[in-house]
Amino acid sequence: MYPSTFTYYRAGSVQEALKLLVENPDAKLLAGGHSLIPAMKLRLASPSALIDISRVPELAGIRDAGDRIVIGATTRYDDIQRSELVRQVLPILPEAIDVIGDLQVRNMGTIGGSLAHADPAADLPAVVLALGAELKAVGPDGERTIPADQFFVDLFTTALQPNEILTEISFPKPPARTGISYQKFANPASGYAVVGAAAVVTLGEDGKVAAVRVGVTGAGPYAVRRQSVEQALVGQEPTAAAIEAASQLASEGMTFNSDIFASDEYRAHLTRVFVKRALTRAVERARG
């Protein structure tokens, strides 16, 4: 509960934050602080400096960019939940945010912080995978865009370089007849996901699955897409039997976490069950 000594900087702009990162190679960016500060209090993290980006104006906010919705990295959960635009177009975000922590956490935590932290049990990684988001990062060498599929690479590890800042997350607007759902099995102690499954299903005029994306979090060391499930469903009538059969593939080729609450075997089972539940709900919604 008592972090070691660190220096605190408050960045006024992305450029200033980048400069501070170069000058302080041991530093960590501070957004909502709701993953980083607990880790520091337990001395699991002992950065020499914190660079607070939570007040950089250009990093926060939600905007409509035509066929995409763009959310700044330091936009807080609560602001996303309250956004009418998000509620209309990407209802899965408020649905998932609703089950993140408690009110204090949602008042402080940021979307970029959650994704950059890449906690294996965090909720939003599954959602950005299912929505096919793109993540924009800026570093000393300029800007680049990372597809969500390539962003989560290992336990607490993302494609971001230590000197890069995640600036925004850009979501394609889902086409008509799309249904989205996030289903979570929460750990009763922490409230984090033991398994969380996000599904985005677009039906064709014929009622068959035209497109589907599935993301899973909590189960393994990092959030993953479940392409085998998707492939099994595309072009199919989304009947209960078809969904059930496709969901059986959800645990294939994955490594699973194991802890006192849920063994790897049980997590594999939950992965199949929650992918099925997310798909079922998404299909219902796609049908309207």
């Binding site: 750990n187 009763p188 102690a189 922490s190 984090y192 802890d259 006192i260 609450f261």
Partner: peptide, 16 residues
Amino acid sequence: LLSASLMDYAIPKASM
């Protein structure tokens, strides 16, 4: 002790 924090030791919340 594997449940040495409230992240692992599940005291009940009202919603539970």
